[in-house]
């Protein structure tokens, strides 16, 4: 079980846990932070900072009310075979970036769409872009062979629509209730087949995703996009 050490700040806040107590995670895996007696869960990517595991939860959640931390969940993200990697996200995708970057030794460049208070706070090197079209220019200029996108589905869909030359892996955002693959709320259609974001995700080859169906099943979208 994970012991909650402290809350860094309100708003979006850090949950630091004693590293020794948390189950080791692999690159790309997430945890579900549960609140209250009814165990309402929010998926969150872990990363390391100052020797501790950190989770960032957006919104006015009460840290005292954390009842359980589940995981790690989801399939690890395998980046073997890629040499030049670009990560594109918005502010909300920073925890995913940190998780992916810390999960291996590869150098990964970061583009952030718009401003990112969190990136500044974490001291992350990045280049700011204002339009997704700039991703294509970056890919062509630097010969990236992999683009990873996170933050929300619109960013990933937007990059996919650019038809860039590099492979594109997207972090998919759906509601997730548990990491067990029982309820199907997180279904994603990949290569025409139903996959479950909670156990098979959260990383899929972007061109294989049926983005229209993902958009159609936008249940509780506002909430899930915060993760």
């Amino acid at each position: 079980m994970v012991r909650i050490e402290r809350q860094e700040k309100k708003g979006y806040f850090f949950i630091k846990t004693d590293k020794g107590n948390i189950t080791p995670w692999k690159r790309g895996q997430y945890f579900i932070i549960r609140f209250g007696n009814n165990y309402k869960g929010i998926p969150s990517f872990p990363f390391e900072m100052g020797g501790e595991t950190v989770f960032i939860i957006y919104g006015e959640k009460d840290i005292e009310n954390i009842s359980n931390i589940e995981g790690p969940c989801g399939k690890p993200l395998n980046l073997s075979g890629y040499s030049r990697i670009l990560f594109v996200c918005n502010d909300k995708g920073i925890p995913a970036f940190m998780n992916v970057k810390q999960g291996g030794k590869e150098h990964i460049d970061l583009l952030i769409l718009g401003s990112s208070e969190l990136a500044e706070e974490l001291g992350v090197n990045y280049k700011r872009i204002n339009y997704l079209e700039e991703v294509r220019e970056e890919v062509n200029r630097n010969n990236y062979d992999l683009v990873i996108s996170a933050g929300d589905n619109e960013i990933s869909k937007g990059i996919e629509d650019l038809n860039i030359s590099a492979e594109h892996i997207a972090c998919v955002y759906t509601p997730i209730r548990d990491g067990t693959g029982l309820c199907l709320i997180c279904r994603v259609y990949v290569k025409g087949e139903m996959r479950l974001n909670c156990v098979d995700g959260r990383w899929f080859i972007a061109r294989d995703i049926d983005w229209d169906k993902l958009k159609a099943s936008k249940k509780e979208k506002a909430e899930c996009l915060r993760r």
Binding site: M1, T23, Q29, E70, C73, G179, T180
Partner: peptide, 10 residues
Amino acid sequence: IFGCVVGRSK
């Protein structure tokens, strides 16, 4: 051991 998805967490 709650919150452990065998096959993913361990």
